[in-house]
Design a protein around this nucleic acid. Structure first.
Length: 476
RNA sequence: GGUCCCAUCGUCUAGAGGCCCAGGACGUAGCCCUCUCAAGGCUAAAACACGGGUUCGAAUCCCGUUGGGACCGCCA
């Protein structure tokens, strides 16, 4: 029943790929993959003053990072100006479009008048039947809208939406500089690229009737439309920069995993029963437009963070170790990522990944694995390096130095023996040790931590406190 | 202002007339586990915007009200 599926994602390179755009891209991608169709990337850069090559690069980088691969493109509308021109001239020849010589000032005045006089349309179609020839001063090409009747959009998400044709303007399709406007270029491209389903934000729903008339003017098949509800900020207005981090790459920098972003975005407006966590393959298998909701969704950073922590928890330690390197570097914890022992790092990551919400969080927690002079808060030192505490530190140090195989099981035996001998709970010993070797009171289990940290480092840190308990401060 | 869209816990949502005195998830609170912190487990508070219909029966269908949003450019 569904023929060959061809969808596209068509960002305009006037900014970063943001959360909303990424979700539109994701839904198109999922739809294409689900139906084994084609996903086309098209750059809508007809607004030359606001589009930059740098943003194109950045959008592509973000798509790659998210793993949203495309089958065709990226096409650029600026490479296709002659095509739009040809299409437009055909419409003029067929009497379906016309040249207009009204000046911007004149149009502005008409718009103002329309606003005050309850007229739905700003432009009064003055040039519609004048049969103006091109070349006389500044001319644009306008599309001849039907004056009466109605246009029905059978949207896959919103259902049947009816527009009165009398509300539709004879909009400009070719600007005076010869470039096409958005509403025209999209349709020409979608015809030319044989797009079967147009899946985009519902801010375009009002443009759809205009576009349908262009399809009809070319006597081509109208694609299916699916208008996705918007993503809103906490104040219920359209998500934008003022709501904080909105670009996909910003989340990468913050230490988020791409699969968490994908999962979060997929669940924003779409659902599959009560399931919250999906692999990409599951998303592809389960995705369907019928399960997309109709109402706008508020972006919830807390839930994204939770999903990220879930992916951190379940992530492969070796992979996370690779990914965390840039964050360690940025925090000044390491200087040369190539010289570090990745096997060892991944063991440390293994201990910390379930306790970290982001890669940056992980990097921060990894600090005491690398830094020699760990910082110990004087208040903690006061609380834990008591006469008793120091005694345990000394005993642990002594016990550990006698172990041959430095494994968590053997380390545990040392602690248990000391606890037994002193008739205290394990915590009484573990906490001072934790503070001495990590500088804080929160860490992974003390035995595995000591194992991964290694005999040498641990004994060195313990001895340092035992020898000079009053000055646990770092030299720096 | 005109046109269009939308409306279930604070948030994301399940729910397609009886299975719902509304289920799951995030967040919040408490308890359990425990060498700390997380993770995990359990529990709690928390919603069908309002008003009319239709129906034996409505969160689910219809109408209206209210509230929110989008679009009205030679931006996309």
């Amino acid at each position: 029943m569904i023929g060959r599926v061809r969808v596209r994602f068509a960002p305009s390179p006037t900014g970063h790929l943001h959360i909303g755009g990424a979700r539109t891209a994701l839904f198109n991608w999922l739809f294409a993959r689900h139906y084994k169709g084609a996903f086309v990337l098209r750059i809508e850069d007809t607004d030359k003053s606001r589009s930059t090559d740098e943003y194109i690069e950045l959008i592509i980088e973000a798509m790659n990072w998210l793993g949203l691969d495309w089958d065709e493109g990226p096409y650029r509308q600026t490479d296709r100006f002659n095509i739009y021109r040809e299409y437009a001239e055909k419409l003029v020849k067929d009497g379906k479009a016309y040249y207009c010589i009204c000046s911007p000032e004149e149009l502005e005045a008409k718009r103002r008048l329309a606003a005050t006089s309850n007229t739905p349309i700003g432009y009064d179609r003055k040039c519609r039947d004048l049969e103006i020839r091109p070349g006389i001063g500044s001319t644009v090409i306008r599309f001849k809208m039907p004056l009466e009747g109605e246009t029905v959009v059978n949207d896959l998400i919103k259902g049947k939406v009816v527009f009165e044709n009398s509300q539709l303007e004879d909009f400009v399709i070719i600007r005076s500089d010869g470039t096409p406007t958005y509403n025209f270029a999209v349709v020409v491209d979608d015809i030319d690229m044989k797009i079967s389903h147009v899946i985009r934000g519902d801010d375009h729903l009002n443009n759809t009737p205009k576009q349908i008339h262009i399809y009809e003017a070319f006597d081509t098949k109208i694609p299916e439309f699916a208008h996705l509800p918007m993503i809103l900020g906490p104040d219920k207005s359209r998500l934008s920069k003022r709501h904080g981090a909105t670009s996909v790459l910003a989340y990468k920098e913050l230490g988020y995993l791409p699969e968490a972003i994908i999962n979060y975005l997929a669940r924003l407006g779409w659902s599959h029963g009560d399931q919250e966590i999906f692999t990409k393959d599951e998303l592809i298998a389960y995705f369907s437009i019928e399960n997309i909701g109709k109402s706008a969704a508020i972006f919830n950073p807390d839930k994204l963070l939770w999903l990220n922590s879930q992916y951190m928890l379940k992530g492969d330690s070796l992979r996370l170790a690779q990914l965390v390197k840039p964050f360690l570097k940025r925090r000044g914890i390491i200087y040369d990522s190539d010289s570090i022992d990745i096997e060892w790092l991944s063991k440390a990551v293994e201990l910390l990944k379930g306790r970290s919400k982001t890669l940056d969080d992980l990097a921060n927690s990894l600090n005491y694995f690398f830094v020699e002079d760990i910082h110990i808060d004087p208040r903690l030192a006061k609380d834990f390096f008591t006469q008793e505490g120091i005694k345990y530190l000394s005993e642990v140090s002594g016990g550990l130095s006698k172990i041959d195989s430095f494994t968590k099981d053997e380390i545990a035996k040392v602690f248990e023996a000391i606890a037994e001998r002193n008739k205290v709970k394990l915590g009484a010993i573990a906490q001072p040790v934790r503070v001495a070797i990590t500088g804080g009171t929160a860490s992974p289990g003390i035995f595995e931590l000591i194992e991964v940290l290694g005999k040498e480092k641990v004994i060195k840190r313990l001895s340092k406190i035992v020898e000079s308990p009053k000055i646990p401060l770092p030299r720096s």
